[in-house]
């Protein structure tokens, strides 16, 4: 008797897990496809998607195009983050910098980056440049806004405490202000990463001959919904990976926060 109740309890806890509903969803999807309720041209079955994924991996089609997209994001991020961090430091650490930079940045914030796509095409053509430029441009703002407010939000009492021990302005910036603004910087970094992937999707629709966006566009023309779903999965994986990367940095850089484990 006790063994069977234990079994029942395990069974019950097994089916109350968070994984249940996604699996049921996948089963329904697969079943719907096999019964012909979901036509292949509308949405490929999960099994077909996995088959396509494996095929695209073995032929190298997916890794090659992913690499091209990755380079675009990386280049855009390096440029955008450098500019964003530089501007935030200038605006956060000096009154003149604030007066010169912040108003423009706040005005720019109201314009959606993707609305600038036509202008960027006019300026930079349809090659790699507008793609990288769009990603760079979009990733400036999250990191700028968060780092700037992080610098301004550093506890004044800590700054005064450090000053009372005779620390110079540079030492105060290095020991107090920058570490104090680091959590905000990482929040901005996380937003910048997810924005860069979002912009990548759109930027790669501009006359791409390689990359994830190229794969999607091609697949659309041939109604290959399986390839489209594979690319969606890859986008999701990129987003997850970016988030995981920032979490990893946070765990290392913010080890002093006792509540990080719960976050």
């Amino acid at each position: 008797m006790p063994r069977s109740t234990q079994f029942h309890r395990r069974l019950a806890s097994l089916f109350s897990g968070h994984w249940v509903s996604p699996v049921v969803f996948l089963i329904l999807w697969e079943g719907g496809s096999r019964l012909g309720l979901i036509p292949k041209s509308t949405l490929a079955a999960p099994s077909a998607v996995i088959g396509t994924l494996v095929e695209m991996l073995t032929t190298g089609e997916l890794p090659d195009n992913l690499w091209v997209s990755f380079l675009r994001v990386a280049a855009g991020l390096v440029i955008g983050l450098s500019i964003g961090i530089g501007l935030a430091l200038a605006a956060g650490l000096s009154r003149q910098g604030e007066a010169a930079i912040d108003p423009i940045m706040q005005i720019k914030r109201t314009i959606p980056t993707l609305a600038l796509t036509p202008l960027f095409i006019v300026w930079f053509g349809i090659g790699e440049t507008p793609k990288v430029a769009l990603i760079a441009f979009a990733s400036i703002f999250p990191v700028y806004l968060n780092l700037y407010s992080g610098i301004r939000g550093v506890d004044v009492r800590l700054i005064e405490g450090a000053r009372s021990f005779g620390l110079s302005r540079a030492e105060v910036i290095w020991h107090v202000i920058l570490p104090g603004a680091l959590p905000s910087l990482l929040v901005g970094l996380r937003y910048s990463l997810s924005v860069s992937i979002l912009v990548l999707v759109v930027a790669e629709q501009i006359n791409a001959s390689a990359g994830l966006g190229y794969l999607v566009n091609n697949a659309r023309d041939f109604m290959r919904t399986d390839i489209i779903v594979v690319c969606l999965l890859v986008y999701a994986a990129l987003g997850l990976g970016a988030d995981g990367l920032v979490r990893l940095i946070e765990r290392r850089a913010l080890a002093w926060r006792p509540n990080l484990a719960e976050a």
């Binding site: 800590l158 405490g161 450090a162 020991h175 570490p179 002093w256």
Partner: peptide, 9 residues
């Protein structure tokens, strides 16, 4: 308030 920098040991 002790004003210790929380990010320094």
């Amino acid at each position: 308030d002790a004003r210790l920098l929380p990010w320094k040991k």
